[in-house]
Design a binder for these strands. Sequence first.
DNA 1: ACATAACTACCCATTAAGGGGTAGATCGCC
DNA 2: GGCGATCTACCCCTTAATGGGTAGTTATGT
Lengths: 214, 214
Amino acid sequence: MTDPTRVLIIDDHPLFRRGLSQLLELARSFALVGEAASGQEGIELARRLDPDLILLDLNMTGMSGVETLSTLRDLGIESRIILVTVSNAPEDLVAAIRAGADGYILKDNEPDEMLALIDAAMHGRTAISPELTSLLATALREERIVEQRSQVALTERETAILKYLAAGMSNKLIARELDIMEGTVKVHIRNLLKKLKFRSRVEAAVWAVANGLS
Amino acid sequence: MTDPTRVLIIDDHPLFRRGLSQLLELARSFALVGEAASGQEGIELARRLDPDLILLDLNMTGMSGVETLSTLRDLGIESRIILVTVSNAPEDLVAAIRAGADGYILKDNEPDEMLALIDAAMHGRTAISPELTSLLATALREERIVEQRSQVALTERETAILKYLAAGMSNKLIARELDIMEGTVKVHIRNLLKKLKFRSRVEAAVWAVANGLS
DNA sequence: ACATAACTACCCATTAAGGGGTAGATCGCC
DNA sequence: GGCGATCTACCCCTTAATGGGTAGTTATGT
């Protein structure tokens, strides 16, 4: 048998730490090496212990779970990190995944299921409670709605000007480039902002760059 | 008991159509109203029959599954559409979800599981084979913009403000976000523009986005 | 104790950008 | 011919952004 997985638990609820550690004991292949009651303390311990797995509570007073996670990753901690939470809010999940979580488990999952998910995370997969899968899909789909901006019919001139905008050029420069009056450029900018529902050239430029219209 | 779910199957493999239809027969709550062996034929039938559910093969010769799906959605077909496939390639999955799929099921799933997923899709959830969940997470994570500290020495505040700039925000909004005066934001902007040798916030924002500074 | 850097806040000024309008020229289409 | 879309150009005005200055506070290191 291989060495047990060295686990650190970060949660400000003593009772839940207790529950988790008992669950891990049951599974026998885990060794609890540390417990922390706050993000700061958890970060300290993580640096000192370099555990294989960190179980991290999302909803903590003071430093939140996602903040703690970000800090851990910034510090170069490469442990598998699983967020344990009662929240099924999409934004929490997406934020956690983006911040580098390896898993996202609901506290009310069955113990069996939790162990299975933890196991999945330890084997390199991203472990997410099945109830949350559709949330991920929704998050992806919402980005698709943003893409509908690219479906809006810009005229040839507007598209050209958006490209110059995405290069960071001022109205004056664009006018010189296209050999038209600056006022005319303003008209086109005004129209394209309205069509794409942007409130400023900066928003439009940022969007264009991020969507490869450079 | 409610009316059976009216199903259309689009797949160019006769054998698999057969298998699917038998599976649905078993479940009793489905009525197969049409079968198509190609994307074109499927679109025809979908328009005529307006089924409740469309099971669509991803890997078809000629018109692909995703193409067919896009066309169906463009035509205003509002049936639940589940892609059935052998592919576990992330890009296929992401493309399908983006194109408006309500589900994505692997052909080698157990019949029980397939029925459960189809049922989930019919109840408004996005049904995705559990094996694919981590792919979705990965897709999301790759879009996570990693902060790349540039070699130029920006202060902490300037870096923070550059991020907001890269989000297209105005001085006023940034000030509100950071809870400082708009004039102070202007100072920081002025300083960072000078340090990075930009002539406008748009140039800075465009550069920041292109260089992955969220 | 002193110097420095960073953050804050305000003063001044000019230019850039955004939002509304009218209007002429050109082109394709019913 | 008339209609609508597009591109052009100008009018108006308000707001946003930029570039310069001084200056107080805090923290950090010499």
